[in-house]
């Protein structure tokens, strides 16, 4: 039982990261492989404000979000839009986006190594045990989970009920037709990309409350977020959340029953099954 709850708590935070990535990949069609570095940057900001100025990570995220938003907006408009424009085909854009975001990810890691060194960083915040359904959990994990729930909920409502949210979903489904009905595809793509980045960085801030990070852990998060997005279905927020919770549970199960060193292997096995049997994602509709 406590494995299940630990897993759900972890999965909630994964959901936040993966929702951020899915906004970028599902809506804007840019596979952002620098996603994990954004998490580490978000986590590092939380760490720095907590240790240097004793600012609660839950407050830091309000600073992290707009900064990450602006940064991702810039990345999209300056670096990625020219690629979108020059791409002759979907495949070429895919390759260019993969190489560019890999490049950004390595640059980010390199800069972080140069500025902060290669040490692990962690801090103690709300590390009080809390009793929940007969087992104890860190309060920080529960707070992070609640933060994730609030943000995912808000995002879901925004995408389904606000005008820009609906427009972004229209772009995801049919970019050509969206243009015809008067949607400013360029502006909204940038908006969705920036928003995805902001959500991811906030997720990093929340995760740092209970996980130890270092400059080069980003790629692990990127991998997990990618697996979740594909498992849940590209562009499908509901699927992403379900897949994230499933992955969280699977990981905590493998970590406690088999070996903590095998969590990624387990995630991979799950990924392989998805690729073999449901490549369109858990809730995706079959193509043929």
């Amino acid at each position: 039982m406590d494995i299940l709850i630990t897993g759900l708590l972890l999965g909630g935070t994964y959901a936040l990261i993966a929702v951020g990535l899915n906004l970028q990949y599902g809506m804007v069609r840019i596979m952002n492989l620098a996603n994990g570095e954004l998490i580490v940057i978000g986590g590092f900001a939380a760490f720095w404000f907590q240790t240097a100025a004793s600012v609660s990570p839950l407050l830091t995220v309000f600073l992290v979000a707009p900064v990450a938003f602006a940064l991702n907006w810039l990345i999209y408009t300056v670096m990625l839009r020219p690629l979108v424009k020059r791409a002759k085909s979907r495949g070429q854009l895919e390759v260019d986006a993969i190489l560019t975001t890999f490049g950004l990810s390595f640059v980010a890691v390199g800069v972080m190594l140069a500025v902060f060194g290669g040490d692990y960083f962690s801090y103690s915040y709300l590390a009080r045990p809390v009793e929940l359904l007969g087992a104890t959990f860190g309060l920080n994990r529960i707070m992070a989970f609640l933060g994730a729930v609030v943000i995912c909920g808000a995002l879901y409502l925004w995408l389904n009920h606000s005008r820009p949210g609906l427009s972004i979903r229209a772009i995801a489904v049919a970019p050509q037709s969206a243009r015809l009905v008067g949607i400013d595809v360029q502006k909204l793509s940038a908006l969705a990309f920036a928003l995805g980045g902001a959500v991811t960085a906030v997720g990093g801030g929340l995760i740092s409350m209970f996980l130890t990070l270092d400059a080069s852990t980003g790629v692990m998060f990127t991998l997990k977020a990618l697996i979740i997005v594909i498992m849940g279905g590209v562009g499908d927020m509901r699927g992403t959340i379900v897949a994230a919770l499933a992955l969280g549970v699977l990981e905590s199960f493998v970590a406690s029953v088999l070996d903590p060193g095998l969590t990624l292997a387990a995630a991979y096995l799950l990924f392989l099954l998805v690729l073999l049997f449901r490549p369109q994602g858990l809730f995706g509709r079959g193509q043929a």
Partner: peptide, 20 residues
Amino acid sequence: PNQTTLLLGLCFLLIVYLLP
């Protein structure tokens, strides 16, 4: 020795933008 990652990153960007 710590900057090899940065080098890799810059090379990726170089390839995409200047030497496709």
